[in-house]
Design a protein around this nucleic acid. Structure first.
Lengths: 208, 208
DNA sequence: ACATGTGAACTGCTTCACAGCG
DNA sequence: CGCTGTGAAGCAGTTCACATGT
């Protein structure tokens, strides 16, 4: 199979969001045109995105909402449950642990780790705070599929090296620093400063 | 001036991060090669990115760290202070209000808004919780340059319409829903589910 | 008649390679 | 000589337009 562009995957997520929304409202059929309008793209783009994975529509008619939802869930890897743990029980780590949105999409928070003895053993929402020292062992035991990293930038690379060594294959980092991982580890970084700077750049340079 | 690609802006942010880091360590000179290695790109890409805005280097020598930092800050619009407010004093809103990383890059949090009477008048870190009802007036008065949106998805579009009406021109949304804004309003969306799905997609489809 | 699926055209980002200049 | 700055080439993602199937 051809390599899929990151932008395509992002759009598939958006399409799935809409399908679940309108599906919950009882809508049974939709079109590439609808999906495009709601997702801020074009109908040709929608059809091209889907065509990488198969032919899910009926010509002259459109797409079945439940069918296409289910195909997209399959494609995005959401057919199974994923266990995610949060490393770093600071402001953002705790906020994410309490955030309900994960479960809705099938992600289970299986732990939050910290090195502060005052926090270890406590709970954040329903999630137990565990000792960072046991992180590698828990990962090696297969307890977590994905690590969400919410530690200070100066500790981030150290944690990454440890969890990669323990066998983790997917990391979502909120640490404001560039991280190095082997090629077989998937890393995504959300950087607040970068997002704000994209805005200030646009505001500053809008009329050139 | 030619339109600048979003990917270019993202990289400029990354370059600036490194320049400030190595600048703090006292490094005075760097090269496109260094920046490329640290930022995970190529030296040609670095030079091309910078060349959109001018010639900041010395042939045969490289770039002056303080000079290039200052140029990048200018380009990204960081020469001035920006006032940002957070709308939604829930888990994520409060975590962001307490997050120190903003100030480091020159962003000032000038308020956090909520509609819950129990929260209004309280403080999150140093930031006063204000009544959402005064949001439009405060924006119209020019108190805030950028709104960071951390409200439940079902309220998000309503808030957006209100603040856009009040004259806001830049929004960073953490709401898990697609938002509509006029063309002259800059909108960026950070969507946790989308990030995780990019990871699960990669994990699921890695060896095709 | 209508909306999908898809090769072909197009646009734009990235990489290459080298001229230019300290 | 070394590293920048930059046209030109290459490649990837998007848009177009129409054949195809219902």
């Amino acid at each position: 199979m051809k390599r899929i562009a990151e932008s395509t995957v992002r759009r598939l997520s958006i399409y799935l969001g809409f399908l679940e929304e309108i599906g919950a409202e009882g809508v049974l059929t939709t079109s590439s045109d609808d999906l495009a309008r709601l997702g801020g793209t074009t109908s040709a783009q929608v059809r091209k995105d889907l065509s990488f994975f198969g032919s899910f529509g009926k010509r002259g008619l459109g797409y079945s909402v439940p069918e296409l939802s289910s195909h997209l869930r399959e494609i995005l890897g959401l057919a199974r449950k994923w266990h995610i743990c949060i490393v770093g029980a600071g402001n953002i780590g705790c906020a994410l642990a309490r955030y309900a949105g994960f479960a809705e999409r099938g992600f289970m928070i299986t732990g939050i780790y910290d090195s502060d003895p005052d926090r270890i053993g406590g709970r954040v929402g329903r999630v137990l705070v565990r000792d960072s020292a046991s992180l590698e062992a828990d990962i090696a035991a297969g307890e977590h599929d994905i690590v969400v990293l919410t530690v200070p930038p100066e500790n981030a690379q150290d944690i990454v090296d440890r969890i990669v060594g323990a066998g983790i294959k997917a990391i979502l980092s909120f640490a404001a620093t560039q991280l190095a991982v082997p090629a077989d580890v998937e890393l995504r970084t959300v950087n607040m400063a970068m997002e704000l700077e994209a805005l200030t750049f646009a505001l500053t340079n809008r009329d050139r």
